[in-house]
């Protein structure tokens, strides 16, 4: 069949050259007019993301405003669910995802090992601190959040609020706690692992006896305490807490005295993305100072972009005791963490 390839090659050489000329910028990093033209031809980009559904659509709206020729589809779910879906799809030969965002940074290590990712460094990422990006340019921290504690201020007076994880073992919190699930949420997984490192499984075992309501997403727990369904949240996205506070919901953030898990949430492009050019346009767009500032202001996230400022009223990162994430160490432990956790807290 070799001759056939040859034959085709010769016959289609001019077209191939042309395609090369168009496709070449895709290998480059900046959003060039040629890349844009190719992206517009693809017409669409599919973004799997674990960020809160309303924040994700906010970003999508901003993208549509800048690139009306590229239709953006958002598929939002919990990080672990996103991971399962992509793996399930790839195992079945379905190539649907272009760009992925997950709060479980170990996913990117895994996907990179599988050689499923495309190397691409958005121009802005060059200025991001080295510890938040892959040395070979396969992914970089698009957003960060803290997995914070929180409470409902009408149900719990500020003076009685817990100050850290160990306080939650007090019998007075029995039946009042809510926690997200590391089997669903990447932030929860990263955060729960940080808690395990700091306090041991022993702590979680005691916590599981406190009648903790088990929700799935770290975007769900802040909504639960805002509605008053539970009084205190063991973990939840700091950004959802900011959103609730901006909406005047009766909630307050607690940065636990043992330390607050810091969760980096990278994005990456899939090597077999069905819309490779549009994927690069989106990826470049996501890391710009403008979008980063939008996510910070409206979505409450933390940014790793050097030009982005936290709005007034939010505690600066420098003043918070951080429990850093460690995806490389966590990766081989993930299945075990989920299993042990589920045995204690249920699904």
């Amino acid at each position: 069949m070799r001759w056939m390839k040859w034959n085709c090659g010769i016959r289609t050489l001019p077209i191939a050259l042309l395609a090369c000329a168009i496709a070449a910028p895709a290998a480059g990093q900046e959003t060039t007019p040629a890349m844009l033209a190719a992206a517009a031809k693809e017409g669409k980009v599919v973004w799997y993301s674990s960020i809160d559904v309303k924040v994700s659509e906010l970003i999508a709206k901003a993208f549509r405003a800048d690139y009306p020729n590229i239709q953006i589809e958002v598929e939002r779910s919990g990080s672990e669910r996103v991971f399962q879906r992509i793996n399930q799809e790839y195992q079945s030969g379905i190539k649907n995802v272009d760009v992925v965002n997950s709060s479980d940074a170990s996913h990117f290590i895994y996907w990179k090992q599988q050689k499923w990712l495309a190397a691409h460094t958005p121009p802005d990422v060059k200025r991001y601190p080295a510890q938040f990006k892959d040395a070979e340019g396969y992914y970089a921290g698009w957003r960060a959040t803290l997995s914070v504690m929180g409470y409902n201020t009408t149900l719990v007076p500020a003076k009685d609020a817990p100050t850290g994880y160990l306080d939650l073992l007090d019998p007075k919190w029995k039946g009042k706690l809510v926690k997200s699930h590391p089997g669903y949420s990447g932030t929860s997984l990263t955060g729960t692992y940080a808690i395990v490192k700091a306090l041991g499984w022993d702590y979680l075992e005691k916590l599981s006896k406190q009648g903790v309501q088990q929700l799935q997403s770290t975007t769900a727990t802040p909504k639960s305490i805002a509605s008053g369904e539970r009084a205190v949240m063991v973990d939840g996205n700091e950004y959802n807490m900011f959103i609730e506070i901006d909406a005047k919901s009766p909630v307050a953030i607690i940065y636990p005295k043992e330390g607050t898990p810091f969760v980096t949430s990278p994005t990456a492009i899939f090597a077999e993305a069905p819309h490779p050019n549009a994927a690069r346009v989106l990826q470049n767009f996501l890391y710009t100072a403008k979008v980063q500032q939008l996510a910070v202001n409206e979505g409450g996230t933390r940014s790793l972009h050097p030009d982005v400022k936290d709005p007034p009223g939010r505690t600066p990162l420098a003043q918070i005791k951080i429990l850093p994430d460690d995806p490389a160490t966590m990766l081989p432990l993930v299945a075990d963490i989920k299993k042990r956790y589920t045995a204690l807290f249920g699904n």
């Binding site: 599919v46 799997y48 809160d52 559904v53 309303k54 589809e73 598929e75 939002r76 779910s77 919990g78 669910r81 879906r85 399930q88 799809e89 379905i94 649907n96 995802v97 669903y184 929700l215 799935q216 997403s217 975007t219 769900a220 727990t221 909504k223 639960s224």
Partner: peptide, 23 residues
């Protein structure tokens, strides 16, 4: 379901996991 073949019921189930009761 996969991302391309989602139905309304599955979309709602996804929204439930993040407590988005309004939508």
């Amino acid at each position: 379901f996969t991302a391309r073949t989602k139905t309304i019921s599955v979309t709602m189930f996804d929204l439930r996991e993040s407590n988005d009761w309004g939508p």
